[in-house]
Design a protein around this nucleic acid. Structure first.
Length: 280
DNA sequence: ACCCAGGGGCAAG
DNA sequence: CTTGCCCATGGG
C-alpha cells in the first residue's frame, strides 16, 4: 500500500474532522484512512501525525482540495475571544474549510435542505452512481455534471429520494447548462454580488448560497446561518434579547467574526452539534 | 413580514 | 410497526 502512497506535509490538519464536519458528504472510511472522489479523480487519504499520505500522483490536488495552504494560525488569531469560540476552537483545531468543485458543492447543498447528514450522504451516493461518470474501473463516481442532470426529468431525481428538492436541483442544473447562470463568472464577483447571483439558482436561498461561497468559492468570510448556528448565536451572543431578526443576526455575525467568519462558523457549528446530547 | 407545504430518514412510542 | 419530528426554500 505505502508504495502507492505519497507523503504530503500537513501540519495543523485533522483529516477526520475535516471530512466529518458537514461540509462534505461522500468520503468513506477505508481501513485506516478514507476514500473519496476529488472532482473526477479517486483519492485515498490517510493521516499519520503531521503527514498526509495520499494516492501517488494526487499530492498537489489533495493539497489544494484540503486547503493545506490556509494559514490556520493567522485565521485563529482573528477569532473573537469568548467562551463559546474558545471551546469550539479547542474541540476543532485542525479542521479546514476545503475547496470543493463549484457545482458539486452547490448541488449537494440544494439536496441538503432540511436534511440530516446521513440522508444527504445517501442522496449524493445515489446521484453519483446513477448519473455520474465512473472513475476508472473502481467503485467511485464523479458527481453528475449540470449537463447530465439537466437532461433528466424530475421523476428521475425524485426516484433518488430527493423529494421536493428534485425540482430545485433540476432547475439549477438547467440554469447552469443553458448558461443562464455562469459559475465561472461568479468566481470573479465580489462576495455580495456572488451571493446574489447564486441565489438566482433554484433551491438556493441565503443559507445555501453562503455554503457554496464558503466551501467552493473560497470566500472565507461567508457565514451560513442554519438552525444550529442560529441557536448558538441566539443563546450565547443574544442571551438577553428576546426577539432578534435574521437580518440582525447576519449583520452581527459579519462584524463580530470578521474576515474568517466562515471558519469561525464551521467550528461553532460542529462543536454545537457534537458537544450536546441533542437539540437544546 | 408572516405562514406553511413538503420527502423521507429516524427517534420515540 | 406507526406516529411525530426535523427544517431551507419558495410561494401564497
Amino acid at each position: 500500500m505505502s508504495a502507492r502512497l505519497a507523503e504530503v506535509a500537513a501540519p495543523d490538519f485533522d483529516l477526520a474532522l475535516t471530512l466529518s464536519c458537514g461540509q462534505l458528504f461522500h468520503w468513506q472510511r477505508q481501513g485506516t484512512g478514507w476514500v473519496g472522489a476529488i472532482g473526477d479523480k479517486a483519492c485515498y487519504a490517510e493521516q499519520r501525525g503531521d503527514a498526509l499520505f495520499v494516492t501517488r500522483g494526487m499530492e498537489e490536488i489533495a493539497r489544494r482540495y484540503f486547503a493545506l495552504d490556509h494559514p490556520l494560525a493567522e485565521i485563529y488569531a482573528t477569532f473573537p475571544r469568548d467562551p463559546a469560540m474558545d471551546a469550539a476552537l479547542a474541540a476543532c483545531r485542525g479542521m479546514r474549510i476545503v475547496r470543493q468543485p463549484h457545482w458539486e458543492c452547490i448541488a449537494s447543498f440544494i439536496t441538503s435542505a432540511q436534511k440530516a447528514v446521513p440522508h444527504i450522504t445517501q442522496i449524493s451516493h445515489t446521484l453519483r452512481t446513477r448519473f455520474g461518470k465512473r472513475i476508472g474501473d473502481g467503485p467511485l463516481f464523479a458527481y453528475p455534471t449540470p449537463d447530465a442532470l439537466a437532461a433528466l426529468e424530475e421523476d428521475d431525481l425524485r426516484a433518488c429520494a430527493l423529494g421536493y428538492r428534485a425540482k430545485n436541483l433540476l432547475r439549477a442544473a438547467r440554469q447552469i447548462a443553458s448558461g443562464e447562470v455562469s459559475l465561472t463568472a461568479i468566481t470573479k464577483l465580489d462576495d455580495d454580488s456572488a451571493h446574489r447571483e447564486l441565489m438566482r439558482l433554484g433551491g438556493v436561498g441565503p443559507k445555501v448560497a453562503n455554503c457554496a461561497l464558503l466551501f467552493a468559492f473560497e470566500r472565507l468570510a461567508a457565514f451560513p446561518i442554519d438552525v444550529w448556528i442560529e441557536r448558538v448565536l441566539r443563546q450565547i451572543y443574544f442571551a438577553k434579547k428576546r426577539r432578534v431578526t435574521a437580518a440582525r443576526l447576519r449583520d452581527y455575525a459579519a462584524k463580530y467574526f470578521g474576515a474568517y467568519g466562515g471558519y469561525a462558523q464551521q467550528y461553532l457549528f460542529h462543536h454545537a452539534r457534537t458537544s450536546r446530547p441533542q437539540k437544546s
